[in-house]
Design a protein around this nucleic acid. Sequence first.
DNA 1: TATTCTGAAATACAGACTGTCTAGCGAAAT
DNA 2: ATTTCGCTAGACAGTCTGTATTTCAGAATA
Lengths: 204, 204
Amino acid sequence: MATRKYEQRLRAEAAEETRRRILDALYQRLREAPAEPVSIDRIAQLARVARPTVYLAFGSRAGLFDAVGADVLQRGGFERMLQASAHASAREGLRGGIRGVTEMYAANRDVIRVLSSMAQLDAAAVGGATQRLEQGRASGMAHLAQRLADHGALRPDVTVDHATDLLWLLTSFESFDLLYTGRKLSVDKVAKALTTTAEHSLLQ
Amino acid sequence: MATRKYEQRLRAEAAEETRRRILDALYQRLREAPAEPVSIDRIAQLARVARPTVYLAFGSRAGLFDAVGADVLQRGGFERMLQASAHASAREGLRGGIRGVTEMYAANRDVIRVLSSMAQLDAAAVGGATQRLEQGRASGMAHLAQRLADHGALRPDVTVDHATDLLWLLTSFESFDLLYTGRKLSVDKVAKALTTTAEHSLLQ
DNA sequence: TATTCTGAAATACAGACTGTCTAGCGAAAT
DNA sequence: ATTTCGCTAGACAGTCTGTATTTCAGAATA
């Protein structure tokens, strides 16, 4: 029963590539028809893979959606963006932060839309994908609000808590999408509208 | 084969009552577990009704959700509220409109959450329920923005279009819920936060 | 009271989907 | 040459939607 050494190279690469192909198929499917239900079978066909292979690679339907969520976060550089906004001056951080999330939302609009809707309807259906995104944003906005207060940039009648609440609202995907999809504004105009709203409401 | 006259009284009432019982069961189900998938079978059991009866009364799963959406609109008095806000002065209309939708959202939070999420994931799954709500709100906000402009209440750097966009954002269910559920603010604080944001950003 | 109508129950069925299991192929790794 | 393992193919149980059929009980009529 002595299992002999077995270092993978090509095989591991091939496995990683089918994983990638399945994820890409899901991306494609979501982009082409974001308002239609998604079946694992169709994803498998799109990826030219047998259906059980999807379960082999991602464990479950929820695992697949969780993975696509993690992929969006990583590709979009969400963490990096939040940290970058913390390096500039407080006022610059506000502008840059809003612009950063806006562009990231725009680049992945369909995927994020589906993930967050699924999370609302069935908490177990997407793993922790959206929770991770939300949590990072929550602490990021609390941090930004505190920095604005420390710099004396907030209006006198605005508390740190209230600033956090409003930043939470204005940097949400939902706010972006209400203007981008709902009002058909360009990415640029959405970022501008959200930024000026934050500035008018929070800054001196 | 001459069908004889047949005026219903008790029978129609009984039918209306089972319809009502099914709707109430769905309300109850959504309130008790808003983040779990809803099966028609469970709704039927809750309403103490056979599953085919649900299809008899509402035609389809989509028909049931469409009906519950219409019910929320009617009970919540959404139309009436929008019109009422149009009677007061423009500034009063802004305050009253935001407070009105906020209270209506709070009273039906779970149902609206599920309906709007379902609409995002599968356009055909809820009939026109959410579309009707959105459309009324869109024209209502355009109207309110125009009135504010006519009264010279808008900041000089704010166009009617921009005011419409921002009102659209701030009176959305998503904005309400981001603060109410996401930030755990009370209904009163949500209304206040949304109102002051609108006033700071739009009014002179 | 006898007859007719009809809302609802009970049951069964087709079809789509998820998730799991088995057997086996074929190419990579030794 | 032999072992390993990613993947396929096929089948299966279980859950869900939506529909069709039959039957019953009670309301509406005469």
